[in-house]
Each structure stands twice: as C-alpha cells, then as structure tokens.
Nucleic acid binder design. Sequence first.
DNA 1: ATTATTTACTACATCGATTGCGTAGCAAGA
DNA 2: TCTTGCTACGCAATCGATGTAGTAAATAAT
Lengths: 341, 341
Amino acid sequence: MKKKVSIKDIAAQLNISITTVSLILNGKSKQVGLSEAQTERVLKYVEEIGYKPNMLAKSLRTGKTKIICLLIEDIADPFFSTVAAHVEELLNQHGYKIIYGSTKNQTAKAIELIDLFRDRHVDGFIICPPEGLESDITGLLNEHIPLVLFDRYYKAIDTDTVIVDNLESSCKAVNYLIDHNYKNIGFVTLDSEQTQMQDRLQGYQKAINDHGFTPYIKKLSFSKVNQSGIDDIVLFLTENPQIDALFFGTNYLTIKGIEAIDRLKLSIPGNMGVISFDDHDVFKLFKPGITAMAQPLLQISEQMVNLLLEQIEHTGSDRKRKKIIVPAIFKERQSSVSKAE
Amino acid sequence: MKKKVSIKDIAAQLNISITTVSLILNGKSKQVGLSEAQTERVLKYVEEIGYKPNMLAKSLRTGKTKIICLLIEDIADPFFSTVAAHVEELLNQHGYKIIYGSTKNQTAKAIELIDLFRDRHVDGFIICPPEGLESDITGLLNEHIPLVLFDRYYKAIDTDTVIVDNLESSCKAVNYLIDHNYKNIGFVTLDSEQTQMQDRLQGYQKAINDHGFTPYIKKLSFSKVNQSGIDDIVLFLTENPQIDALFFGTNYLTIKGIEAIDRLKLSIPGNMGVISFDDHDVFKLFKPGITAMAQPLLQISEQMVNLLLEQIEHTGSDRKRKKIIVPAIFKERQSSVSKAE
DNA sequence: ATTATTTACTACATCGATTGCGTAGCAAGA
DNA sequence: TCTTGCTACGCAATCGATGTAGTAAATAAT
C-alpha cells in the first residue's frame, strides 16, 4: 500500500524547495528561469514515483475544479443520456470531467442541485431548466459562472442557449401530415409553459391555421404521464373520433400514444397517422416505423460544449451571449405515409 | 454580485474565533461546551447571510469528498442509465453526489478514469469493469478505497460484488424455449471472457446438454456489434437454417437480432422464437412483445449502495467482502409462445 | 485562602498545493 | 572596489476549512 506523496515529499527528496517543484510541474520553469538540469531532474523523479497532484488542494488554491455540471431532466431518458454521453466525451477531450444531476423537471430539486454543485465549485453548468429557475440562473450569471441552457430557455434572461427550431420543425411535421392527406390532426403535448413546448404548440397551430383546419389539442400534466397518460389519450381519441393523425410533443408522449392507439385497436398509419417530436430507439424498430422530428443530439452537444468553453476561456466581460438554434431532422418512416382518400 | 463569505469572515463579524464558528457549524458545540447563547448567535448569523462552507477546503482537510464514482460501460445504454438514475437517487439520500464515467468497455479508458477519479479523492467506486482491470482494482482495494463491482467481477479478486444469477437465469430461459417446443435454439453472445457472458453461455450450454440438443453459438465482437452485428446474425441464421429460436446474451444483441430476423423475412415467434437477456423499453412495446430475462435494476442498485455505505462506515479492516447474487426476473411476452408442432 | 475543577473559548498547526516577492551568487561594467 | 544585472532558486502567505492542545476566568472544593 503506497502512501500518497505530496509535492513536499518530492522537494525533500530532491533537496530543493516546494516552489521549485511546483513551478516545474506547472511548466513554468522556462518562464521563471529554472535550469534545464533541475527541471529534468524533477520531471524524471516525479515520473519515477508516479506522483499525482492533489486536485483538491489545487482547486482550493486556484479556484478551478475542471468539473462541469450537467443538469438534466432524467439520466434514464434516452434523449438526455445520449446528450450526456456526447457532452462527456467532448468535455473529456478538454480535460473536464462531468458531474450530473437529474432534476425530474422539478424546480425544487433543480435549485437544490445547482446550489450543491456551486458549492462544489464546478467550473460551469449545462442545464436543461425546469420552470421557475429564473432567479437561480440569474444568480449564476451574476457570479460569472459559465452557463449554457439547452432544450428550453427563459425569455426574460439573456443566456447562452442551444435549442432546436421547435416552431419551424413542428410546423413542418404537421404540414407533412396535411400533405399526406390527413385532415383532422391532433396534438398531444404537455401542460407546460416551457419554451420548447410552447413553440411546438405554436408550430402546430400555425400549420393548422394556414390550412384552415380544426385544431385538436390535448395537454397532459408532466407528472401524470406515467400514471394516466395512456388513459388520457384514449379518452381524447374517443371524444374526437374524427381525428385521423396525431402529432406528439415529445417521444415519451408518443410511446404512450402508441399504446393508447393499440388499446383502441386502431392501426398505424391506416386509421391513425403518427409523427413524434424527438426520436427514440423504439421508433425505427417499431412496425410500422414511427416518423419523428429528431433532435441532432451530437450537434446540440457540440454547440453546448463550444459555448461553455468560450465562456470559460473568455474572462473579459464584453462577450455577447449566443442563442444557437439547430435544425431538427425529419426521419420519415411508415407511420405517416399517405392516407388513402 | 455577492462575494463568497468564509468562516473567517463570520468569525470576524461576530468577534469570535474561527475555531468557535467551525465547532458550532459542525454541531460540536455541546460536545466541547460552547454556550447556548453563542451557538444560537452564530447559527442565526450563518443562516442570515446564507453561508455555505467551501467543500474543497473541507475535503482537503478531512479527506472526504462525499462524491462517489460510478463507472459504467455507456451512460447512453438504458441498462446503465437506469442503474445510474437509481444509484444517484439512493446515494443522494445519504448526502453523496455521484460522478460518472463511461468506459465503453475499454480497458485503457477505464484505467484512465479510475486514476482521474482517485486523484479527485472520490469516497468510493461503483464499477462495471471491462476486462483486464485486475491490477487497478487490487490497487484500490489496497488503498482501502470503498469499492463495489457489478454486472461482472474477477474470479481472482475478492471484492464486494452485485450480480444476477446469470447461469441459472440463462438456463431457465433456454429451458423455457425448450418447453415451448423449440428444438434448435441458437445463442447469440459476445466474444468476451467476462464472467457475466461466460455464465450466460454456460447456462445456455447446460440447458442444451440436459436435453441432448445441438448447440448453435454465435459470438460477436463487442466493438463490431454496431457495424456488422446484423449482417453477422443474418449469416449465422442463413448457415443454420434449422434454428427455430434465438436466445440473446444482451439486449442490444437482441435488437440487432430482431433487425436480422426482419431482414430475412422471418416472423417472430412463428419462424423464430426469441428471448433476450436484459430487458429494454422497446421489448414490451414491440409487436410481438419480446420475452426477456430482466435484471432487477432497482434491487441491484440498492444492494450496491448498501455495500458501498457499509464499507464507508466500516473503517476497521475485519469486514468480510460480500458477493450478492440477485435473481433475474422472467418477463414472459409473445416472442416465445409455444411453437406449433 | 489556596488549589482543583469546570466553563467557554481561542491559538495554531495542518491538509497540499500556488505564487508574489525576495535574495544569494556570480560576472560584467564603471 | 562597488554597483548593476542576471541566473536560479527559496520564503512565506494564502486558499478555507478541521481539530488538538491549551488558557483565562469563574466556580467549587478543601
């Protein structure tokens, strides 16, 4: 069992000062004019004994932890876990580790987590914010803590943000259904004020209005999707039997919807055209394949990491915050093929 | 923009010593005999200004970080992300945060990550180890760092471990197929020496041998599953047309298998019975539902967290290491219903 | 009145690094 | 000989906490 060696032990062993060792280890030997010989000697010895600096001490002193906090809804959700995987990979390339927290879309939990990680002095945050976090986000901004929001944002706060073009994409998806001969298109969404859901709703409404169609909108409460989601959709469809296609606001709503449609013994796309916002592994495997408006997760992750690194590197205060909107990708599958007249 | 207050500022403000503040904040006021009045005063003030201790300094001093490292194959895999979600939740209840890393099942990446997190002084590890990590694991044990392995383990090293009864479960699954009239049952697995895959293979072989059947085994290389997995399985089935059922060693193999079967225009379970080791969201939604031997993820997570906390709390060296084997759960669906004679 | 005990705190070293400032040693220029 | 200027390094403060050992004052015991 090896005991941990500190910079002090090294200095003692080599009969030099701690300062010298530290400077050499931080590559400042040239800068401060330490001799080649000494530098070599220290580097060689350090290598030999496999010394690893204590990151805690380092962080305490420098104020940098090289840890980024990723705050998402739920790590078990494929959308978020995929983003997490990408962000992890990308940030690793820059020497950052990532620590994450699942908010379950609950304001209180999110606030608690932000506090906790701020206490741990993470170097930055990537956050998919639930509702009602305005003041906490503002707090982070005021302390100049690097921060990127994604998937949704707050209209009232100027933050670096990465989202998809929710409105446009939704509009396109609904137009696609209209073009394929569906006449009564319903929209199943969350009862949420969050920007992404609002924009998707508006996209739906725009497409419907543009064609003078009748809107059919069902809003489910986030917390009840798992309990009564299927029942709610069954009811919605029963009450509106004329509906011949459904557009879903998120992938888990689509999954509930598929089960509901199945329960009503309706066939996809024969009786019911389906398009999902957000893709899912299931959708391409499912028979018929479920058409989806997919978010380009790698691209989103890259943009987020870039924005975050920009902030970390840019210590001045004159940087302009950026909102990046990436286009969603339409994955055409069989659940939305042309309806027979 | 509020500046961070330290324990020193508090002491100065209240005209008392740093020690006193620290003692009170750590709830030792009674123990060391500080006056009620003083205690109240400090607590009240601390509350007022919303002081948060610097965890870095605390950790540096105490050697505890209250962070646990979860090392898994891939956070984007639903098996691991679900475990991650459970572990996070459970450990949060005990005041621990979790930091994770995806090894992609690569030895080098895993070693690097373990090193990194050890440097960061995490209080413990939960690891799903790739092959060839024996010496690193031994290293952790020697340093008495709390450690739990899961999903697989090293036969040569005595560690706390949580796994499912891979051999038994696999045997049961294959027996189920046999009982349902399938005669030529293939096993699609990974070309891996890891215990979980070996045990599943042995379970398969036992069931096949017990009935005097012919084994058909296809081993895919982990790294190539995504590229050529489907083709490989198609080939395997083409070369062995008598196969009437497949047992898959992991859920992602099953997914490849389903696509392969689909490509061959075979129907499940009509032409091909299917059972998967490991469940997946897709499987219950799929038509027909895919029968699976599911791992009880919450139970596994609970056991891991328990073992880890035991180690953290048990500072003596006489603790006996535990291997916990939890039973898998058979999820009977339609992909394995009785074959017509 | 003197010593012992208790009460209520405080001083200081420490964890393992970083870093601004200081300086010894030596050669060259004045 | 003395100042100046390098070169090559060291001292000590600091980050923000913890915890041991100690002390001053008040009270109790003898």
